[in-house]
Amino acid sequence: MLKAYKFRLYPTDSQQVYFANCFGCVRFVYNKMLNDKIEHYKETKQMLKNTPAQYKEAFPFLKEVDSLALANTQQNLEKAYKNFFRDKSVGFPKFKSKHKSNASYTTNNQGGNIRIEGKKIKLPKIGFVRIRQHREFEGVIKSCTVSMSRTGKYFISILVEREVPEWVPAEHKIGIDLGLSDFAATTNDAGESVKHGNPRCLRKTEKQIKKAQRALSRKQKGSKNWEKARLVLAKKHEKIANQRKHFLHDLSNKLTDENQVLVIETLRSSNLMKNHRLAKSIADVSWFEFGRQLAYKAEWKGRTLIKADKFYPSSQICSACGHRDGKKALHIREWTCPACGATHDRDINASKNLLALAK
């Protein structure tokens, strides 16, 4: 089983310069190879087989960085390029921008050239870099990705091959209904219904974000004061993203630890965000990311994740008698079944109906 562990790096000034060179060379090679592929295809209508080694004589600065980082960039480009010709809907590869693309590069472990010793990690071409390893891991290091955030922080994601742990089966099944007023309503087969509050990470700091954005807009782009204001805004966005990830990881871990079968509704966020009144709130809850986390954690722990059909009317069916009462406006949070007279909380009722799909 492959699992990634992400840690904070604290490089020296000279090491930061090397990382910047790596980020730049990886971006340069990707763009150069993509441009040559495009020009070659225009002339011959065939795919060009080019490699980073072909450019090292013309651009000697490419020899100063990790060759494996350039090779991994080539693999990423080849995969994206072939995927486009296989399925046009995935989109054509885009050129990497210095200011918009993620600053990162990936290198592989060959002969133990990546290893952790004490409070430092050894990386190819650069040597030992200080690392904050906040948790231990077991297994063989396969590769690692060094990245820099918009706020100038450095991180390393270490991909480790480890044995699949033996997880003890959980005793419960659970239905999960996602929402906006509450992030999720859950009901398990023991009859326990719980509402998990929406943290509203963006909404709670929206005024601070707007103030920082106005301050940035008043500065001359490229000036020192503009860079200071940009950093202030970037830190606020980074904090919101970290708060959201922390909440999602906590909840997804809790649900996958306690339940053997999980049933979740399928929501198309892209379609729902066409409602401009709710778009910001929908983006803030990150339903897609939550579903992604549930999927891979369920696989790790030997759980079963069931995604209900997107047309399944979980909010329209009475969980007591099965009567289908039809669509309801979003402001209706409670309703009474006309067939059996049971009064339902909209979200809890939906979670009970999703639980009924558990096998």
Score class of each variant (00 low, 15 high):
His246Met: 13
Arg230Thr: 01
Asn225Pro: 07
Met273Ser: 11
Gln243Ser: 10
Lys235His: 06
Asp257His: 13
Lys274Thr: 12
Trp226Gln: 10
Trp226Pro: 05
Asp257Thr: 13
Thr256Leu: 05
Lys235Gly: 00
Thr266Phe: 02
Ser223Gly: 14
Ser223Cys: 12
Ser223Ala: 11
His246Gln: 15
Gln243Leu: 15
Trp226Ala: 15
Ser269Phe: 09
Lys254Ser: 15
Ile240Ala: 07
Val232Ile: 08
Ser252Leu: 04
Asn253Phe: 08
Lys228Asn: 06
His237Ser: 05
Lys274Leu: 14
Leu267Val: 04
His249Ala: 05
His246Ala: 15
Lys239Glu: 00
Leu262Tyr: 06
Leu272Trp: 12
Glu258Asn: 14
Lys224Trp: 08
Lys274Arg: 14
Leu262Thr: 03
Asn225Asp: 09
Asn242Gln: 05
Leu248Tyr: 10
Ser269Arg: 08
Ile264Tyr: 00
Asn225Ile: 09
Thr266Cys: 01
Leu251Tyr: 08
Glu238Met: 10
Thr266Ser: 11
Glu265Cys: 03
Lys254Asn: 14
Glu227Ser: 07
Ser269Met: 10
Ser270Arg: 11
Val261Ser: 02
His246Tyr: 13
Ser252Arg: 07
Lys236Gly: 04
Leu248Lys: 14
Lys228Phe: 10
Leu267Asp: 03
Val232Trp: 00
Ile264Trp: 00
Val261Asn: 02
Arg268Asp: 12
Asn271Ala: 14
Leu262Ala: 03
Gln243Ala: 09
Ile264Thr: 09
Glu238Lys: 04
Leu248Pro: 10
Lys245Met: 06
Ser223Glu: 03
Leu262Ser: 02
Ser269Pro: 06
Ala229Asp: 01
Leu255Thr: 04
Leu255Ser: 07
Asn259Thr: 06
Ala229Phe: 02
Val263Met: 05
Glu265Ser: 03
Leu233Phe: 00
His249Ile: 09
His249Trp: 11
Ser223Val: 11
Ile240Trp: 00
Phe247Tyr: 15
Leu233Thr: 01
Ala234Asn: 00
Val261Gln: 02
Thr256Cys: 11
Asp257Met: 11
Leu255Trp: 06
Lys239Tyr: 02
Lys274Gly: 15
Thr266Ala: 08
Glu265Gln: 04
Lys254Gly: 12
Glu258Met: 14
Lys245Gln: 12
Lys254Met: 13
Leu231Asn: 07
Leu267Glu: 07
Lys224Ser: 15
Lys274Glu: 15
Arg230Gly: 03
Leu255Pro: 03
Lys274His: 12
Val261His: 05
Trp226Tyr: 15
Leu255Glu: 10
Leu262Pro: 01
Asp257Trp: 10
Val261Ala: 03
Lys239Leu: 06
Glu265Gly: 14
Glu238Phe: 06
Leu267Pro: 00
Ala241Asn: 00
Arg230Trp: 01
Leu251Phe: 08
Val263Cys: 08
Ser270Met: 12
Ala234Met: 02
Leu233His: 01
Lys235Val: 02
Val232Pro: 01
Asn253Val: 03
Lys224Cys: 15
Val263Leu: 05
Thr256Ala: 05
Val261Glu: 06
Arg244His: 04
Ser269Leu: 12
Asn271Glu: 09
Asp250Phe: 07
His237Asn: 07
His249Val: 08
Glu265Val: 04
Lys239Asn: 04
Thr266Leu: 01
Asn253Arg: 11
Glu265Asp: 08
Lys228Pro: 09
Lys235Gln: 07
Asp257Asn: 15
Leu248Thr: 10
Leu231Glu: 10
Glu227Leu: 08
Arg268Phe: 02
His246Ile: 04
Asp257Gln: 14
Met273Lys: 14
Lys236Leu: 14
Leu255Val: 08
Ser269Asn: 12
Thr266Tyr: 02
